[in-house]
Nucleic acid binder design. Structure first.
Length: 289
DNA sequence: CCACAGGTGTGTC
DNA sequence: GACACACCTGTG
């Protein structure tokens, strides 16, 4: 993949990505890949990623990363925001038909975040048979209760890291149930204890193809193909992972005669999934934040 | 009261 | 294997 070459300007506690025409914060955080960011009235998104608080906004064609030093950018956020992936080029390779063409155009500016593996696994276990406001609420409480404080903002609000697998394992199934996670409590605990003990090694899927990685993650209770696919796409950057949720299933039935998305869209199926998901939800007026 | 929400485990055929 | 069906909980 050809590397993108946006000009990057570093200031004291701020990084500016110039002419970021394939980076729309609103789309990045509203396309459902991430549950840890919220939107301010002025359109700025804020939250904690990789134990660092950050604010993201777009002013004209530039993306502003507030509280992000040059070192933070190079060590964390360049990778987190997938800055070395050429979305314009990948989009061209997805032009299989009118529907995906339209969805790609509509969704321009979505990027696949490179999120923490454990956080993504835990978050998408919580997401099952659940709605987004409630998922975000549970995760927020999880971080507040079992994470570490990392930053106090100008309004005096504390922001917390995502708790480690060890911390969640210590909290136990009971601790998870107290967060009102319902039947997911035993799944979260199973994931945490297997990751904390090393029974599941979250580094292993890095070296595996998508389908092998998916089988591996499904050794965790409460992890099926959908959750495994989300984790592989959003935390391992397996762009060929194609998570099929109710929305995507509807789209496949409606426009693609029930085709298998992963086969049809190929190596960038995951991008196609995000574009179609975002496109269809916006058309149906489902707003996330 | 009932349906629904970014699914998965279990039981049945 | 391909189906139903239950499942915690909050919200409309």
């Amino acid at each position: 993949m050809v590397k993108t070459k946006n000009k990057i300007v570093f200031e004291k506690n701020r990084t500016i990505i110039k002419n970021a025409d394939n980076f729309e914060p609103e789309k990045v955080f509203d396309c459902g890949q991430c549950f840890r960011f919220d939107r301010k009235a002025d359109g700025t998104y804020f939250g904690v990623a990789k134990n660092k608080y950050i604010e993201i906004s777009k002013i004209q064609s530039d993306v502003i990363l507030n509280y992000c030093t040059e070192n933070d950018y190079n060590e964390i956020f360049r990778d987190y925001f997938d800055m070395d992936f050429d979305y314009a080029l990948a989009g061209k390779e997805l032009a299989f038909d009118d529907v995906i063409l339209q969805a790609t155009e509509f969704s321009k500016g979505i990027r696949i975040l490179h999120q923490d593996k454990w956080e993504t696994l835990c978050s998408f276990i919580i997401s099952q048979n659940n709605n987004i406001p409630r998922i975000k609420g549970i995760i927020s409480n999880l971080c507040k209760t079992y994470g570490e404080p990392v930053f106090t903002d100008n309004d005096g609000n504390m922001h917390y890291s995502f708790p480690t697998a060890e911390a969640v394992a210590r909290a136990g199934e009971k601790g998870m149930a107290e967060l009102r996670t319902g039947f997911r409590a035993k799944y979260i605990y199973d994931a945490a204890s297997k990751v904390a003990s090393g029974e599941i090694d979250l580094m292993l899927p890095c070296l595996m193809a998508y389908d092998e990685g998916a089988r591996y993650l499904q050794n965790i209770k409460g992890v099926g193909l959908k959750v495994a696919s989300c984790v592989l796409l959003f935390a391992y950057q397996k762009y060929d992972a194609f998570p099929v949720d109710v929305w995507v299933k509807r789209i496949l039935d409606k426009y693609y005669e029930g085709k298998v998305g992963a086969e049809y869209f190929g190596k960038y199926a995951g991008l196609a999934q995000q574009y179609l998901f975002y496109y269809e939800r916006c058309k149906n007026n489902v707003f996330i934040n």
